[in-house]
Nucleic acid binder design. Structure first.
Length: 650
RNA sequence: GCCAGAGUAGCUCAGUGGUAGAGCAGCUGAUUCGUAAUCAGCAGGUCGCAGGUUCAAAUCCUGUCUCUGGCUCCA
């Protein structure tokens, strides 16, 4: 350190507002120690002008300085990233022939990609984990180094790390940073915890193949996933959440509750809705149909297959071909529709449209088939045949805002009904750097974007703007909802389409008798019934609200002596429009209750001689237990009210 | 599609070269019971499928099908 730079002073503003001076090469650690900042022993890193910064990295100049403690939201990412490094170190120690690729922190933890001839096994994970614990115990300092790019290249070449060399070449600037703990070095931007002892609780979870740089053309690496938290309690909570997600798995509940199945004999990704699942779907369809009809949508039905020419005109044949099923008959080629839009545009094209005909809101619960690669299929979430709650709105420029606004209102209504409390709105717009690759004029894009933004603002909806995320044919809003255990699901979408109206040359005649191209908005609220059903099963953990429940009430006679009353009560419930059953098995009530609870039936009605005499039922609510006796009529009233209001509680 | 793992009774799983098992579910009978499992008996299998090795294969080998986890949130 030259005397000159040591002498130069910088000003550091501390969290309590004090401004202190420090040496130009001082680190956050130096300043914190000198100023006796609280929590230095536990700090994960520092925050310099809001940016996470190593405790032992010299400050860049005068700045605001704070310490990042383990409970700080920013700490998690650093902690996990450092844990990934320690894992890589453990792997290299245990398996010296391994080459390291990359290891970032991700939403729920971290991973690291390795190259190795033999795969990692579950037993290896346990070994790696215990080696990691040893590294933590050794308390190795994690040190940041800054070197020239050439020196970094030389370093990683010497270490025999071709993947790291690649990254230094691709991503490194003139000065390159790497981090070192013990014998382990990794090209990395940082920051990291100052010492391996500062790691929190971690666990390695799984190993899987992953292509180098994510491209199928490249070799496959081994990816080890893990997660890390500041404390053991938080880690255990997280593992508990994973366990809860497993309990809610719609594939498991779908089988246990007899809702749906996927059949090997039919092929992957094709859904068989069993009677109980079909009831749920029909309730959802009825609800949506009511909402849509109230809002002026007109339902249409279009064929499942069409001549290839239709999809050549729409353009799907060119850019969507690998996802389409085709068939040939009488030397003609047909396409099984992968989307409903071309069909809806055909309907629009019949007859001349006047400006008075708009807006035209065309809805269809349209079943489409798309070829998805076998490895991507997953329960109801990723399938090959599914039914979209699809609609296309054709409208004039002056109607844009109201139409988008109504879509948002519909979305809010639907989410509220299903009990999704939190949603996130994302606006995808053009990439300003590459305006050439988009369909539609600048004016159209501006008008559409304006309608989308203003509609959201009008409703006070915060949204995130994603530059360059728009599809080529128009801007869009995507809506994510969060389910009962906080997982996000992309559901609704409102998309402008400047492409299809032109390709099919659709038009309307305006007030001045001029031919105009209408705006076309594509929108789906649930996406597909299949996927939404899967989400709902997990959201409710199989316990559907009364209006959706396949069986709403089950009558549980205490003994055969009240069989007649039980059957009569069952008839009355069904006559009142409720889905009710009578459990006449020669089992004890306890067993009948247990089975009804396991089937997640919302209402259990216990009847014995007492109830039979008075025309009552003893109501037991799912998950809540005995509510005591009440007249049968009053129960019917209550149940019908819950159904009519589509209430979320029982 | 690719990589790894897994396919044994309806479900959950045991069985690692020598006669295919358990619990639950199912069926039959008994029991007639008051808020999360009554008792007994019976039945249930091409061990995913096709080849091969072997005196003998659920088990070893090859192929194939299906499922599961993953395949840039990124130095």
């Amino acid at each position: 350190m030259s005397e000159q730079s040591a002498a130069r002073q910088i000003e550091v503003t501390l969290p309590d507002g004090r401004v202190v001076s420090a040496g130009a090469k001082d680190t956050p650690y130096d300043v914190a120690r000198a100023q006796r900042l609280e929590g230095l022993e536990t700090a994960i890193a520092a925050r310099v002008d809001g940016t996470p910064w190593d405790l032992h990295r010299p400050l860049p100049g005068s700045c605001h300085l704070a310490l990042i403690q383990p409970e700080d939201p920013d700490a998690l990412e650093i902690l996990r990233h450092s844990t990934a490094h320690v894992m890589a170190q453990a792997v290299k120690e245990l398996f010296p022939d391994t080459r390291i690729a990359q290891g970032p922190s991700i939403a729920d933890g971290f991973y690291y990609d390795f190259h190795r001839d033999t795969p990692f096994t579950e037993q290896d994970l346990a070994k790696i984990e215990s080696r990691m614990r040893k590294l933590v115990k050794r308390g190795l300092p994690i040190v940041r180094h800054e070197v020239s790019r050439d020196e970094a290249l030389r370093l990683f070449e010497e270490e025999g790390e071709p993947y790291k060399v690649h990254f230094v070449r691709e991503k490194g600037g003139d000065v390159v940073s790497y981090y070192e703990q013990g014998d382990f070095r990794d090209f990395c931007r940082g920051p990291h915890v100052p010492n391996t002892r500062r790691l929190g609780a971690f666990k390695l979870l799984s190993v899987a193949g992953a292509y180098w740089l994510g491209s199928e053309k490249n070799e496959m690496l081994w990816r080890i996933y893990g997660t890390a938290f500041p404390t053991k309690e938080q880690l255990e909570q997280h593992l508990e959440r994973l366990e809860e997600a497993r309990r809610r798995d719609h594939r498991r509940l779908g089988r246990e509750l007899d809702l749906f199945s996927l059949q090997e004999s039919a092929g992957g990704g094709l859904v068989f809705w069993h009677a109980r699942g079909a009831i749920v779907r029909q309730q959802i369809e009825t609800f949506l149909r009511e909402e849509l009809e109230r809002r002026g949508y007109r339902f249409v039905i279009t064929p499942h297959i069409a001549r290839d020419t239709l999809f050549r005109t729409s353009g799907h044949y060119d850019f969507y071909r690998e996802n389409m099923y085709t068939l040939t008959a009488d030397d003609e080629e047909f396409v099984v529709k992968p989307m409903n839009c071309p069909g809806h545009v055909q309907i629009y094209r019949t007859g001349l449209k006047s400006y008075r005909d708009l807006p035209l809101r065309m809805a269809e619960f349209g079943t489409v088939y798309r070829y998805e690669r076998s490895g991507t299929l997953h329960g109801l979430f990723r399938v090959r045949g599914f039914t979209q709650d699809d609609a296309h709105i054709f409208c004039r420029p002056d109607q844009l805002l109201d139409e988008v606004d109504d879509c948002l209102d519909l979305i809010a209504t639907v989410f509220r009904t299903f009990g999704f409390e939190k949603a996130r709105y994302e606006l995808s717009v053009r990439d300003p750097a590459d305006p050439g690759k988009y369909a539609g004029t600048d004016e159209e894009w501006a008008a559409a974007e304006d309608a989308l933004v203003r509609a959201m603002e009008r409703r006070g909806l915060e949204h995130q703007r994603l530059e360059g995320e728009a599809v080529f044919y128009g801007p869009k809003i995507d809506v994510k909802v969060y389910d009962a255990i906080g997982r996000p699901w992309q559901l609704s979408t409102v998309q402008f389409d400047f492409n299809l109206p032109r390709r099919f040359e659709i038009s309307y005649i305006d007030q001045e008798s001029r031919q105009r191209t209408p705006y076309m908005v594509h929108r789906a609220i649930l996406g597909s019934f299949e996927r939404f059903f899967g989400i709902l099963i997990e959201h409710y953990a199989g316990s559907f609200p009364v209006w959706l429940a396949p069986v709403q009430a089950r009558i549980l006679p205490v003994s055969d002596k009240v069989r007649e009353f039980a059957e009569e009560a069952g008839r009355r419930l069904r006559a009142a429009g409720l889905r009710a059953e009578v459990d006449l098995r020669s089992e004890k009530v306890g067993a009948k209750i247990r089975d009804a609870e396991l089937e997640k039936i919302p209402y259990m009605l216990v009847v014995g001689p007492r109830e039979a005499e008075r025309g009552e039922v003893s109501l037991r609510l799912r998950h809540e237990g005995d509510q005591g006796p009440m007249p049968l009529d009053r129960f019917i009233e209550r149940a019908r009210d819950k159904v009519a209001r589509r209430a979320l509680d029982n």
